[in-house]
Design a protein around this nucleic acid. Structure first.
Lengths: 340, 340
DNA sequence: TTGTACGCGTTATCAT
DNA sequence: ATGATAACGCGTACAA
């Protein structure tokens, strides 16, 4: 049994050293061939690439990250993967970073804040080059860990004057106010709300009710789903508002398009005409909002822009190019369609 | 300026050695305190934990993985994050692994196969302890890299007699056949299909048409969306079938519940009664399928079970406990509701 | 119970 | 253009 092991042995992975041996160069030259090919002679480069192909060598990014102190990994914590609002956002965010050679380490936090702290710790142990958090409420311990990590941090989907470092999102109170103005100005004197279990949604709802009342309207009832948004929850909430609160006319402000869709279906099943008898307004402007029947009036959040700007902010800090603004309010837009 | 640096210096991260210095023990003892606390005296443990708290120490998982050759990282490649079918599946998969102390490195491959190869390579460079792929079609080069990695591999959402290593999914041809049988047995003699741009969906559609014809039915038309499934695509496809293929009655087999929902809305907008004039059948059994009006008849795939069994198969291989089956057919179930 | 010595596979620095 | 050497921070023997 020769001790030479140019072909890879049993469990051992192929290393740069092995590739180098095969190409007749040292390990360092292999490293250079991959990171700075222009600093290696064409002939050497050719032999190295051949050896790489023969051995099926895949660089060990763990070792690379340890040595260079750059993991090219970005942490992202979002409430839910199955909620299209967040998944489409994270798709834009990921794509931007993928173009720059980064990978995303993604975790769901759920809507209970308690899980976040442990997740942050686990994520930081992978030494990401930056981290994204959803929302602006984090425990003291979480903030401490984040600051200690010494990496760029962005909080999304909300804004505050005191972000951990940077935030990009929009003002939920203002969104609630403008939705109330819109529905009142449409001639609705009565309104109800359907809200999922989500702190930001609650904040919008409170702002909505406050403003709608201030304008002179009456809030007939508030239905909380007690869980994530779903079509079923929307149907049940409308049923509740009708049967328990005697809702017969006016407007309904839903905390998501998904809930609004449920309300739309329940109204249709009950033979209630939308928007004539009941005006229904969603939130988010999902892709399908315009394809519902009637097309859904809603508050549009540009999730793609949100993802891109969050990524840009982090990239600017990572590359130390430019100074991204600490508070980036991307706003929202009320989209009037047929349902309200 | 003393050379002692018990408090962490400028950019340097806190290491086990630093924690050890503060607690008056060596680096190894700190390591042990974290991995095998029972092998450390209570008093020492107390001092170490105190030092950890004071310094805000977060272990470097990169270094740990390099030394132990275990990254506690699982790679997952799925076609799309925004498609609830896959995101709910991956949520179950992730949850199972999270319980076992693993994190998921997730990437979208899109529905074009070409991107997969590069993604596999990038993922393998992080030295995951296992990898999950969607589908059973992979390039030769991809298979080579996968086998060379020497880690457990599971392919999901489809089955084949020759998986790279293991697969858990269901038979798409059989699903198409049974859907055809179902709709024909319901008394439909005409049928059409609406199919998204997805290889597995196409395979189901082909099997459906074949079987429906074999039974004596007639295929009126096949609408391909040419893109991902969406409500809009469903509406447009039904419009196409009606206006271009003269579809007036019979059944429609949609490749996803999302498309079926679009068809439902378009039918409603056109005043076509479902299921009396047109029977509509979806695929996937999304949570909301039963809450549509009329409730959607569809083919149920247990995505949670799929995620759990895929995770279990990998875990069994990682821990070398038990020998998971190479081909795990979890089947499907036709769920009759009101729409067909 | 605790510590010493070494290796994991790469990048960075400095020579040649 | 290429190589030798020293980190990087932690786990795993093995020793005390």
């Amino acid at each position: 049994m020769a001790k030479s092991d140019i072909t890879k042995a049993g469990k051992g992975q192929v290393t740069m050293a092995a590739v180098g041996r095969m190409a007749g160069v040292s390990q360092v030259t292999v490293s250079r061939a991959l990171s700075h090919p222009d600093k290696v002679s064409p002939e050497t480069l050719r032999r190295i690439n051949e050896a790489i192909k023969m051995t099926g060598f895949v660089p060990n990014a763990l070792a690379g990250a340890l040595a260079s102190k750059k993991s090219r990994l970005i942490s992202a914590l979002i409430p839910s993967l199955t909620n299209v609002v967040y998944s489409s956002f994270i798709t834009a965010f990921s794509e931007k970073f993928r173009e720059h050679g980064y990978q995303i380490l993604l975790s769901e936090t759920g809507f209970e804040q308690s899980a976040e702290e442990a997740l942050i710790s686990t994520h930081l142990s992978r030494r990401p080059d930056a981290i994204l958090l959803t929302g602006i409420h984090h425990s003291v311990q979480a903030r401490r860990m984040l600051m200690g990590a010494g990496i760029p941090i962005v909080e999304v989907w909300d804004i505050t004057d005191s972000p951990v470092e940077m935030c990009v999102g929009f003002d939920h109170v203002e969104a609630g106010h403008r939705a109330a103005d819109f529905l009142f100005d449409q001639g609705n004197v009565q309104a109800a709300t359907i809200t999922a279990q989500d702190e930001r949604a609650r904040r919008r709802q409170a702002a909505f009710s406050e403003q709608f009342t201030r304008r002179g309207g009456a809030i007939v009832g508030d239905a909380n789903t007690g869980g994530p948004a779903s079509i079923r929850a929307g149907r049940q909430a409308l049923t509740h508002l009708i049967e328990q609160h005697g809702l017969t006319s006016g407007a309904i402000f839903c905390s998501s398009d998904f809930l609004a869709q449920g309300a739309l279906i329940e109204a249709q099943a009950r033979g209630i005409s939308v928007p004539d008898e009941l005006a229904i307004m969603g939130f988010g402007d999902q892709d399908y909002a315009q394809d519902l029947e009637p097309a859904l009036t809603t508050v549009a959040i540009d999730r793609t822009r949100l993802g891109c700007e969050a990524a840009d902010a982090l990239l600017a800090r990572i590359d130390e190019t430019g100074q991204p603004v600490a508070v980036n309010n991307i706003g929202f837009k009320i989209v009037k369609r047929a349902s309200a």
